[in-house]
């Protein structure tokens, strides 16, 4: 179990992560979703012992991972910059991981290198953005670490490479279940793979729940302006737009059967909101978090 308690990360006057508390059960695929600069990487850096929190704590099975030999060996954190010596060859980096990672799967690594058409003799500094990301994915998956953290691992990958990444990740997870945390803002592409989503915005936790539950949270209500307003009163409104006398509001929170009937009999039409739209609304700049609660 991974437990974050009041986790806060500050850089000088900026607060990147603000008092986040969340528990993540082992063995699931999590999506850490947030816009750029929402604090995803800072949070993951603490989780993977790359930095200390400013306050609060992270524990994995009850222990702090920071400078913890046993825990750090079992955490792989692939961040977009790829922590490697630029002058080294890709193969050298893979060899190093192969020696250091207790569960390294050389066969899988070779297969992924072929899938992504990586040249192990190439120097890391000479790889394209997409190839760097692919190398990160090879390391992240072949390490087969009990806690695998992939931070925007798809940057620069084309659609085909991203699909290959998702496919290989799922395939390996099915054979070797472990905790995987994917940070992304391309939710649409990965939503089906995620068991739970954790959404943060401006350093704060917005949502942590089962992906399927989250998916059914949004509903768009359309109809005559006054009727819509009356129905929406007291509910969490994520977005609204009007055209003439017609208004559409996006509500957060699933409606039960009674509420649906009530809306329909009032002449309102209800339509589901896609998961990507729901995320965009929840984290849009003009929204305040409290309104979503």
């Amino acid at each position: 179990m991974i437990s974050l308690r009041d986790l806060t990360v500050r850089y000088g006057a900026t607060t990147a992560v603000e008092s986040i508390s969340v528990d993540l059960a082992p063995g699931k695929i999590y999506g850490l979703l947030g816009r750029n600069g929402s604090g995803k990487t800072s949070l993951l850096s603490v989780l993977s012992a790359y930095r200390k929190p400013s306050s609060g704590s992270v524990t994995i099975d009850g222990s702090d991972p920071f400078e913890n030999r046993a825990l750090m060996r079992d955490i792989v954190f692939v961040r977009d910059a790829l922590d490697a010596v630029e002058g080294d060859r890709a193969g050298t980096l893979l060899d190093l991981h192969a020696r250091m990672r207790p569960c390294w799967d050389a066969e899988l690594a070779a297969k992924l290198v072929a899938t992504f058409e990586l040249d192990p003799r190439k120097r890391i500094g000479a790889l394209s953005r997409g190839q760097r990301s692919s190398l990160g994915v090879v390391i992240g998956l072949a390490s087969r670490a009990p806690l695998t953290i992939l931070d925007e691992a798809y940057l620069g990958m084309d659609a085909a490479a991203r699909m290959a990444f998702y496919r290989e990740m799922l395939a390996d997870y099915l054979e070797h279940p472990r905790t995987i945390i994917l940070s992304t803002h391309l939710i649409q592409e990965v939503a089906d793979l995620l068991e739970e989503v954790v959404i943060i915005d401006r350093g704060r936790l917005v949502v942590h729940e089962d992906t399927d539950t989250f998916r059914s949270r949004g509903v768009a209500v359309t109809g005559a302006a006054e009727t819509v307003d009356a129905f929406a009163a007291g509910r969490a409104v994520l977005a609204e737009q009007s055209l003439g006398g017609t208004r559409q509001v996006t509500l957060y929170g699933a409606l039960d059967a009674d509420e649906r009937r009530q809306a329909e009999s009032a002449g309102l039409s209800l339509s589901p909101v896609g998961i990507q739209d729901l995320f965009v609304h929840l984290t849009s700049p003009e929204r305040t978090l409290e309104a979503a609660r």
């Binding site: 790359y50 400078e67 913890n68 792989v76 922590d83 010596v85 990672r101 670490a145």
Partner: peptide, 16 residues
């Protein structure tokens, strides 16, 4: 400058 990052990334503590 060059190698610390790389070793922490393969799961080695700073002290090691």
């Amino acid at each position: 400058a060059n190698n610390l990052r790389q070793f922490v990334a393969v799961g080695v503590t700073r002290r090691d």
